[in-house]
Structure formats: structure tokens, C-alpha cells
Design a protein around this nucleic acid. Sequence first.
DNA 1: TTGAAAGCGATACCAT
DNA 2: ATGGTATCGCTTTCAA
Lengths: 333, 333
Amino acid sequence: MAKRVTSIDVATLAGVSQSTVSRVFSDMDNISPEKRRRVLDAANKLGYIPNAIARSLTTQRTNIIGIVMANLTSPFYPYVLEKFLQRFREMEKQTLLFTSAPNQDVDDIMPHIMQHRVDALIITSAMLSTEMADKCLRYGIPVILFNRYILNSNANAVCTDNVEGGRIIANLLLDSGHQNIAYISGQPNVSTNTDREKGFSDRMRERGMTEWLREEGDFFYQSGYDAALRLLSRPDRPDAIFCASDNMALGAIDAARYGLGLRVPDDVSIVGFDDMPMAAWPAYQLTTVAQQVDLMVEATIELMLEKLEDPDSRPILRLIPGRLVLRNSVRGV
Amino acid sequence: MAKRVTSIDVATLAGVSQSTVSRVFSDMDNISPEKRRRVLDAANKLGYIPNAIARSLTTQRTNIIGIVMANLTSPFYPYVLEKFLQRFREMEKQTLLFTSAPNQDVDDIMPHIMQHRVDALIITSAMLSTEMADKCLRYGIPVILFNRYILNSNANAVCTDNVEGGRIIANLLLDSGHQNIAYISGQPNVSTNTDREKGFSDRMRERGMTEWLREEGDFFYQSGYDAALRLLSRPDRPDAIFCASDNMALGAIDAARYGLGLRVPDDVSIVGFDDMPMAAWPAYQLTTVAQQVDLMVEATIELMLEKLEDPDSRPILRLIPGRLVLRNSVRGV
DNA sequence: TTGAAAGCGATACCAT
DNA sequence: ATGGTATCGCTTTCAA
């Protein structure tokens, strides 16, 4: 391998001190135009690229944001990741990406993350133990949860207002005259699921419903397909299904159509949650509550910057409203 | 912020030298069990986490792999990324993720990547100028292109055998008796597109076809939808369409069904390329040529490790065969 | 404006 | 097996 070029090599060639080279590449302004030119020439000639590792060691900042993604395979998250990357690029921050292994707690990978001294950490759709959150706080690393929250914890969070989203859907289905509304859940114990169900159930009861069908899913396509098949094969077949995610809703539509030969929305209305790109495809035309990803990402970054400024300010939970998107999978609207 | 804990603090508390602390955390074995315990106790008490930045500075290795993704929004790539992350996790490597801005050359972000001294770089679906490839070589950073290649360059590459894939599809459609086969292309000047088209065209001609319809797309859903709409509205409507990507093929199916009321495959057969998860959904049942992502990722990592061992070995292009997946979007098979 | 020198927090070589 | 110390490539005082 070619010998590595350092600022000393550049300094020697340019006939200046190493400090001066450093100043040029740190964008300091107290430098004579002539020396700056000489330094840049020399650097160019040698193919010098400043070493961010060494810089981080002295500045105590890496300019790297850590981001933990739980599941990239669900079509909603790549879009989230893309947005974050785009914003980070604009901010000239680098991104260290982690995935938590299936069913693995984020706690397990935290040591790896901390070793690299990221400036801040964003965790999507996964939980962090309170102890870990505290540890990060002690280390001065702001942590923002995205799409999950923990009450009474030191972790900040940005989340869609899932409870209100659930209410919106209950209203929609009841307003459009559905009588027998079923719910297909996501994984239990996940706030996105429980909140959506809570809003839905509360509003159902407020409006006089006392019982309804319910199947358990796991947010993924296949579970929606299977659960819908079970629901729609019953003698007391529901006339509407609220699925806790778009993914499951698409599965439910396919189950209705291709599994049982039913028409959507004529025979059964189906609603999702998230608004992933496929929801808009002609094949599905899914009515859903959109998570406003752009707003959520923006809020997350804003929160992160605040915490970077004042690490000890008290934790914040920011709720972003969901937006009802009417397409064509609910009859009578 | 709490004062940072360093190996010196641990050494002091444990009553040993700083070197010893370092040895414990570098997994050296020449250490008495008793001192090791004392060190670990002290570290634990203080909440010590080794600083990877400082370590990288001395070892000249970051343990970080850079990976550039062109478009996360196409459902094929998240799966690729997921695979890479999974393997890197197993190898205890971290991942620095970059996206090239739309229509931006990877060259533009290379300085950022190089600053962080990644141990190796994987570039998916984007090109690198020959000069940059050379520069990386000089810096001793192995570069592997994934899903693209450049002939006669210093860059290594892993790619599906797209030419053969194109041939396979021509054979399939001709064997099943189609007479009027159209092609919807991806972006021109992209090897994945040109190779697929080349294999397809060559085989078509070898088997006596001289002319066929062709529309230009860009690999994305909407372009497939639009192009199929144009093709299928013609008086000499094709009885089969080969789309250069699954994404476009799904668009084409929707265009046929929902745009024109045609049945797939009865009225028109449609074939894709990639085998993304949705291709298997009941709504589509898309016949396609699968890119064998697992094999490709494995080959990429293997290649990377080879290059890490011997940076000056000559560049390698590794072709992975595509695998025909027969579902239900082609009639007569 | 410029240069000299002291860190940053590890690793690794050299003694012991 | 352990400790002392030079070193990695920068940034950042402090003097000049």
C-alpha cells in the first residue's frame, strides 16, 4: 500500500508549518491567501485527504450519527432511512447504520455503538432499556426514539399520534355505515400497535359498539393475509377490517380477492395504517392513515439538535398527527 | 456532560498500568486472571467503554465498511442492504452508509468516505470513475461494485449474469408460443439494462425474430405502468412483455388489468427481473429471473476479504447466474 | 498571520 | 506477565 499522506507531508512540500495545513483544512480564515494556495497545491499534488479519525480524537466529535433500524424489509422503513440519509448529507454528517437482529434488544448492540462515539443516536422501531438510556445520557449522547416511545424515561421520542389515528379510522368506518368491523393487530406490546388499537377501541365504544372481531398479526404481509382469511371465512363475516399496518392490509386485500373471491370494497372494506408507496398502486388503492415521515424526520433532527445543545434538558415526546388518505378500499365514503 | 472515562482512569482504580487495561480490552491472553478481573471490575464500576477512534488511529484500521446505496426506495435494495448488515454484524464490522444523491456521481461523495478511512468500500448500483477507483487502490481501500461493472477498470465487481438472464427470458417466451414480444427497458447506459436487453435481443434474433416492440422505462413502477399502457393500446398489441425490472413488471400488470381491463396472463404475458418479495404476492404471481442476493452478497464479502489480504491482486468480475422463477404471469408454460 | 508544542486515548514495542 | 514510552494524525492553546 502507498504510504499514507499526512498533513506533515503537505506542510513540508508547501514549506509551511503543520499547524497551517490544519488551519487550511479546518476552514479557518486567518490565513494569508498565498499560503493557503500553496497548501492546497501541495495537498492536491500529494493526494492528501484529512484523517477524520485523528480529527475526532482531538475535537471529541465524530460528526457521525448512529441510526438503528429494526426491519428494513418492511417497505415503510427504507423510505424513513432514505429521508434521514438525505438530511444528514445536507448537514454533512455521516451515518453509522445498525440493525438489531430479529428479537434482539438494542441494548446488546449499544456497546458497539458507544465505542464509535457517535454524536447522537436515532433508534427506529425498537426499544431501549431505561438503564441504557441513562447510560447514554451520562455519556452525553442524545438518543431519540423514532416511532416508539417509553413513558417516564430519559429517552426522547418522535412518534405518529397513533391513538388519534385509531380514532380516525373508527370514525371513518362507522360514518360510512359499517356494522361489523374487525381489527387485525400488530405485535402485542409494541406501542404503535397498542396505541392504534386503543384509539380505535375507545372510539368504537364511545359510539355504542360493544363487541367486535379481532385477530392477531405481526405487521407483516403474510400475517394480514392469514388473519383476513380466517375472518372472512366466518359465517358472521365482517364488512370492514382495520389492519394495524398497510402491509397487513395489502395481505388482507389479496386474501379477500384471491383467497375467497370477494370484492374490495364492495364485499368488504379494508383500511391500513402507514401509507407506504404501494398503498397508492392501482391494484390496491388503499385507504389508510399516513405517517407523515417528512415531518417526523424533521422533528427528530430538530430534537436531536436541541439535545446536542443542551443535553440535560428534560426528555420530550413529540407526536405528529396521522393524515387520513382516502382512496378506494372503503365503501360508502 | 460527565467526564469521559479513559483507560487511565480504569488503570488507576484497578492499580495496574494503562498498558494492562489495553491488553484486557484487546483480548490478549498474556494476562494473569487476577489482574484481568480487577481491570474488568474497575471498568465496570466506572462505565468504561474503549474508544474506537483512538484505537483506529494506532491500528490503522477502523473496522468500518463503507457502503454506498443508490436507491433505497426500490424494494430490491433494502433486502440487499439488510443482507450486508447481517453479515457485517457477524464479522463485527460497522457500517458507514452513504447514498448518492439522485443523478449524483459517487465521485462527489468519495472525499467524505475517504476521510473516514473505511477499511473497504462497497458500491451498489452506481458507477465510479476510473480515476477514483485508482485513487482508492492507491489508498489501499478495496472497492467492490455490486450490481454494476466497468470493463477494463481497477474496480472489482459482483453482478448477476444479466446477459444470460435476458436469454433465458427470450427462450421462455418463445418456447411458450408467444408471437409478439415487447421489451420495456430500464435507464439506458446502465449495464443491468443493456445486458438484459442484449441477451434478450441476441436470443430473439438467433431464433429468427427480426423485429419487436420496445418502450423506454427507468426501472420504476410508474414507468412500467405508462410504457405498458402505450404498448397494450396499440392495434398490434403484444402478447408478451419482458420488463427489465420487477418493479416495472408490476406496473405493467396493473396497467393491463386496471388500465385496460386485460387479463394476465390470458391476454398478455408479463415477465420481470429481480424477484423482489412482492413478485410472489397472490395479486401478481410474477414470473421472473431472480437475482440471487444471498450468493451475491457472499461473493462480494469474499472478494472484499481477498482484496484486504492482497490489495494489488488484479481486479475480478464475478458473475452470479440468475434463477428463473416460474409463477403465473406467463401463459402456456 | 504563523509556528511550536501539548494533548486526544488508544496500541505496540521494548525492557524488566 | 507487566510497566514505560513512543506513536498514530490531527486540533488547539500559547508565543512570537
